[in-house]
């Protein structure tokens, strides 16, 4: 059994890898870009997003509209935060928190036998139907959010571009 246990050295290597500047930069650019795209799509169509929320049959129309008013902006702001390095820890926490809640909601909808669109990146009812793949996607993104949360806050696309331009001048 001892041979199968992960050694402290291996844990240190994995930890160092996950906190490596380049890994963190890629994670934040990917996650930030994804949240910006998701947020913009919903901001331009709040009624469509409210309908997507209503499809989960958990909120009243008024609460769904209230959620559709705020959630897209939360996504946009935390996406920009991750990309630009503004409030990086708060953006990471918010991203991970939202992904956790979205994953639970998809799971609850599946358990209730609903066959609906996720409403995650598009309000087209034909796109992104909920299912195990969606749970897997969201869980993966949630883990990326945790990596970003525990990484150095100063790593961002803007910081990297600045450093790059500073080194060339």
């Amino acid at each position: 059994m001892d041979g199968e246990r992960i050694s402290d050295g291996e844990i240190r290597v994995v930890r160092a890898l996950l906190r490596h500047r380049l890994v963190v930069l890629l994670v934040r650019v990917f996650l930030g870009g994804l949240f910006v795209i998701a947020g913009l799509d919903k901001i331009t169509d709040p009624a469509g997003f409210a309908q997507s929320i209503l499809n989960y049959r958990l909120l009243s129309p008024t609460l769904a509209l209230a959620a559709a008013t705020v959630i897209p902006w939360m996504e946009l702001l935390c996406g920009l935060g991750l990309l630009l390095g503004l409030y990086p820890r708060g953006s990471s926490l918010l991203a991970a928190g939202m992904l956790l809640i979205f994953t639970i909601l998809v799971g609850v909808a599946m358990a209730r036998g609903l066959d609906i669109a996720c409403g995650c990146f598009s309000q087209d009812p034909e796109v992104g139907r909920i299912g195990w793949m969606k749970i897997l996607d969201n869980t993966g993104l949630f883990l990326l959010g945790l990596i970003s949360l525990y990484a150095r806050p100063e790593v961002s696309l803007v910081a990297w571009l600045r450093r790059d331009s500073a080194s060339t001048t």
Binding site: T69, V70, L76, L77, R89, S91, L93, G97
Partner: peptide, 28 residues
């Protein structure tokens, strides 16, 4: 610090979201 930043972002989202939908007469 993470929680403080996240709360600020949520408050900003509430302000931006309600202002945007109020001005454009959409959503809520």
């Amino acid at each position: 610090q993470s929680i403080r930043e996240a709360v600020i972002l949520i408050l900003l989202a509430v302000v931006f979201g309600t202002s945007y939908t109020f001005v454009t007469h959409r959503g809520l």
